[in-house]
Design a protein around this nucleic acid. Sequence first.
DNA 1: AAGTGAGACAACCGCGACTGT
DNA 2: CACAGTCGCGGTTGTCTCACT
Length: 307
Amino acid sequence: MGRAPCCDKAIVKKGPWSPEEDAKLKAYIEENGTGGNWIALPHKIGLKRCGKSCRLRWLNYLRPDIKRGGFTEEEDQRICSLYISIGSRWSIIAAQLPGRTDNDVKNYWNTKLQKKLFGKRKEPPLHLNHVPTLPASALERMHLQGLLSSPFSFCSNPEPWPNHQPPGDRSILPSISTDSTHQAGFQMRSGILKSESASTRGEVERSALAFHSASTGGSLSVETSTSSFDAVTADLQADELDDLLYCNHSSSFAGHQEHELAGLDCCREVFREKESTDWWIVDGFEDESTMVSWDSASALGSQEYDV
DNA sequence: AAGTGAGACAACCGCGACTGT
DNA sequence: CACAGTCGCGGTTGTCTCACT
């Protein structure tokens, strides 16, 4: 028995939306709002569409604040920086780009940016094939980190998330985005304690962080201030990203091979030890890059995390 | 002009998380 | 606490457009 479908697939219409359907949906939402229930909405306005489909159509296409047209260089850089920092959290990345939707950003990454950064080649760099358990996105990010001059630079940033708020106050501060829809998408998910298998996409980040932690004598600070994602992106060298995105980066790549391989070595080292290490994260720090090992846990000190 | 392939964009699907009862 | 309904997300697939042969 699978989960019950959210709507009757025999009745709902699928495929591209007609202008009439768009007009109906748009007019209703502009006048009445979504009513807090997408599933019921299509019935109210006589649309033979799934509620999820209506939601998607509104968020990705009909919403008045949608920005059309090509992405700017600044947006490119921002997407890349954030992708390197947090991975394929498209909704979060999109929230940093006013008027852009997660679908937009995701499509743009998949069709354009990925090619810009990695070239036409589909397979990962040869040496990365030696880490077969890593998911593609993690490999990509590893590769990008290698292309920049400071491998795993994001792990030197104590604040990979825009801010951390205590449980019970999960909404991200307005400074991140003034757009209400985006803010809604920023609802931080609670998760007091997560344990993840070693093969999840956060593998690289955890390894990197553990490496960083070890190399700094096990000290690791996790702060709870309220600065924005700018702190993350500032950590990546904008000019280097610019090189990767808009210039021939072959020379840059060659120059960083050594760094990259060194970074991989540290990962492999950590992978060998992962069996004996318990990985954990604290509430509100959903991103794997913020995970810390027990080795560095003592540094959390005064933080009262519900573990 | 017709066929074809690639690229861009739109939409769907499945799943985990959240919320109310 | 359990359960059902709903939301939101990320991955994937489908469709359309356009350039090229």
